[in-house]
C-alpha cells in the first residue's frame, strides 16, 4: 500500500506528511509530526482528549482521516499560546488549579477556546453542555468550569 502525501497548515504554518490511507489525523499529528500535545484517551470519539480545530471547527482528531487534512487549517494545543505568552484560558486553568493529572487539559483548552470564539459570554450551563464531550476523571469539572467562565469574563473586559 503506498502512502498518501498530505499538505496542510498546522497552527498557522505549512506542514506536510506521508500517511496510510486509514490513518487518523490524531495518529499523523502524534506519530508523524510529533505534536504529542494532542492526546488519545479512547480513539472512538468519546473523550475529547484529541480535540483540535479544522478550519475553525472543533473536531475529534481520532475520528478524522489524516488524508482529509489536505488543504485544511489545523489548530492544536501547541498553537494556543503566542510564543511564551499564554492564552487567557491557559492562564486561568493554571490559576484555578483546573488540572490535576493534566491529560485531559489540552482537549479542554482547545474545546473551550472554540466555545468562547462562538459565544464570548456563556452561562455555566452552556459551558457544561459544550464541554460534555470532554472527559475529565480527576477534577469533578468544578475548577474547569470556573476557569472557563473566568477566562470568558477577562476576555470580555479586554
Amino acid at each position: 500500500m503506498s502512502k498518501i502525501h498530505v499538505k496542510t497548515r498546522i497552527n498557522g504554518e505549512a506542514a506536510e506528511f506521508l500517511c496510510e490511507p486509514d490513518e487518523t489525523l490524531l495518529e499523523a499529528l502524534r506519530d508523524r509530526l510529533h505534536l504529542t500535545g494532542t492526546k488519545e484517551g479512547c480513539g472512538s470519539g468519546d473523550c475529547g482528549a484529541c480535540s483540535v480545530t479544522v478550519n475553525g471547527r472543533l473536531v475529534a482528531s481520532c475520528l478524522m482521516l489524516a488524508a482529509e487534512a489536505e488543504g485544511a487549517e489545523i489548530g492544536t494545543i501547541e498553537g494556543l499560546a503566542k510564543g511564551a505568552e499564554l492564552d487567557v484560558l491557559q492562564r486561568k486553568f493554571v490559576e484555578h488549579a483546573a488540572l490535576q493529572c493534566g491529560i485531559c487539559t489540552p482537549g479542554f483548552l482547545v474545546a473551550s477556546k472554540a466555545l468562547l470564539e462562538k459565544n464570548p459570554d456563556p452561562t455555566e450551563e452552556e459551558v457544561r453542555y459544550w464541554l460534555a464531550g470532554n472527559l475529565c476523571r480527576c477534577t469533578g469539572y468544578d475548577k474547569i468550569i470556573r476557569a472557563v467562565l473566568d477566562a470568558a469574563a477577562e476576555m470580555r473586559r479586554a
Binding site: R30, D31, H34, L35, T36, G37, T38, K39, E40, T76, I77, E78, L80, A81, L86, Q90, F93, V94, E95, A97, L99, G102, I103, T105, P106, L109
Partner: peptide, 21 residues
C-alpha cells in the same frame, strides 16, 4: 501557589506515557 508542571500541561509540552519517541 502556581504549580511548576502546570505550564507544560496547558501548552501540551508535558510528556506522558505514549508521548515518547
Amino acid at each position: 501557589m502556581p504549580r511548576p508542571d502546570a505550564i507544560d500541561k496547558v501548552t501540551g509540552r508535558a510528556l506522558y506515557g505514549a508521548d515518547m519517541h
